[in-house]
Amino acid sequence: MPFTDDAINALNLQESQYPLEFFQTFAQQVTVYEDNDIWVVDKPAGLLSVDGKTLKVSMLARLERANPNVKLIHRLDMDTSGLLIFAKNAAAQTNISKQFIDRLPQKTYQARVFGIWEDVGATGRISVPVRYEPTTKPRHIVDRDWSKNALTLYEVLAHEQCNGQAVTRVALKPVTGRSHQLRVHMVHAGHVIIGDSIYAEGLALEIAPRLNLHAQQLRLKHPVLGAWMDWESSVPF
């Protein structure tokens, strides 16, 4: 559910009054890897990656309080948890941003979707364009006439139960990086991600307290060393 104006103002005020020690401790708690050039963190669900138009509480803003040199490279949806990489200087930011443009980084997400979706071990690909639909803000939709394609690879990991309902655990690998791509592709597949406050309804929304989507693995080349590096985050659901 969207925040009310009063709630946004209260959150912004609260964040502005926290002491430096809060941000330093937060940075330590979320750090997965850090060196002179890059900073890999584990973003909690419910926190923006970067400040919004009104809500000024985000991962970037908090890290900047601990280290003003931190620079944004990519984002996760507010409701998605998991691995984010930031740069600590302009050269590293440029290098890794170009890697994302060239689709070199390898990203794996885990999700739990509503219902039984294919056999365990099944793999496949979803290749349909995704675009923003302004009449149903903030939703995105599949539009086969849209010029920019979106490609997701998937693997069925397990069939499970969540609060008495059948769900399927899947690994999702976005080849492209369209906004809401994984969420919309799961809707398109007929198995919405559980706990998705934007796309799920009824039991699919109610059985999970949060969006069950987590950026579990990230692999890319170090901007200075040139070596491939891998990071993994524990899935919290």
Rank of each mutant, 00 (worst) to 15 (best):
G52A: 15
D37F: 09
L60S: 00
D35S: 10
D37S: 08
I73Q: 00
H74C: 03
S49M: 08
L55T: 10
N36G: 11
E64W: 07
K53G: 12
L72N: 04
L72K: 01
V40M: 04
D51I: 01
S49L: 11
S49G: 12
R65W: 06
L48W: 07
S81D: 05
A61W: 06
A61E: 06
L76M: 07
A61Q: 09
K56T: 07
P44F: 12
V57R: 05
L63G: 00
D37Q: 04
K53N: 13
K71E: 01
P68R: 08
S49I: 12
L60D: 00
D35F: 12
V70L: 08
L47G: 14
S81E: 05
D77T: 13
V41Y: 10
V70W: 01
P68K: 06
V50T: 14
V40T: 07
M78C: 15
R65E: 13
N67C: 15
I73E: 00
A45L: 09
A66T: 02
S58W: 02
L72M: 15
V50I: 15
D51E: 14
G46N: 04
K56W: 01
N36D: 14
G52V: 15
V40W: 04
E34D: 08
D51R: 02
D42Q: 11
V70E: 00
N67M: 13
G52S: 15
D51F: 00
L76W: 09
V40F: 02
G46A: 10
I38H: 01
L72C: 09
T80M: 05
L63D: 00
L76C: 12
K56I: 05
V40A: 03
R75E: 01
V40Q: 08
R75Q: 04
S49K: 08
R62C: 08
S81T: 06
R62G: 05
R65D: 07
N36M: 10
R75F: 07
K71F: 13
P44E: 08
S49V: 13
S58M: 09
A45I: 09
S81N: 03
L60Y: 03
L76A: 07
S81F: 15
L63M: 05
R75N: 04
K53P: 10
L47K: 07
W39M: 01
V40G: 02
D42A: 03
N67F: 09
L47F: 14
H74W: 06
S49A: 14
S81R: 00
L72W: 01
L55E: 05
M78V: 15
N36K: 06
M59I: 10
D77P: 14
V50E: 06
L63F: 02
R65T: 12
A66I: 03
D35Q: 03
T80N: 08
G46C: 10
